[in-house]
């Protein structure tokens, strides 16, 4: 799949906690389960496992790609092909988390790329609402 076929989801959230604290919620299994999933198997180093099992049984399967302590985490993201799980193959998309301290807060920026849910629109006509929800994929023209 080329870049032009994929979609980027971007979100930012302000958290009233230090980056060190927020960091642990992406690297410590018990904390990961406080907000995402019922069980987690995490090996936070490049190439290490990042598996989160959801309450409903779906399994997110990825690998850590990059870790800059308290600043940046990149991991691949996908779902085991079980019934009811989103059709995103294991490790097939990429999630980048950036933590930036700001006063007593941490600004967490999430960027999820490679999602197979967009066909990049070059004309921007009639897509206002779609573009408001999503930032379009980076990269070249649609390869018609």
């Amino acid at each position: 799949m080329t870049n032009s076929d994929s979609t980027v989801v971007e979100q930012t959230v302000r958290i009233n906690a230090r980056p060190e604290t927020v960091w642990r919620y992406w690297t410590d299994p018990s904390r990961m389960c406080d907000w995402w999933g019922a069980a987690a198997e995490l090996d936070p180093r490049p190439g290490g496992t990042c598996v989160v099992e959801m309450d409903h049984g779906g399994v997110m399967r990825g690998e850590y790609v990059e870790l800059v302590p308290h600043e940046r985490i990149v991991f691949s993201f996908g779902w085991d092909p079980t019934e009811g799980a989103p059709a995103i193959a294991p490790c097939s998309t990429l999630v980048e988390i950036t933590l930036t301290p700001e006063g007593d807060d941490t600004i967490l920026a999430l960027r999820h790329t490679g999602l197979p849910i967009g066909v990049r629109d070059e004309h921007h006509g009639g897509w206002g609402h779609f573009l408001a929800i999503l930032a379009t994929a980076a990269g070249g023209a649609v390869d018609d």
Partner: peptide
Amino acid sequence: LRDAAAFVDELWSDRLARLKAAAEREE
């Protein structure tokens, strides 16, 4: 497609809200 994209977007905003609450409780 808009619906599908919005679904993934919502999924993250829901999860990140929970992360925020948990991290702030700990802090």
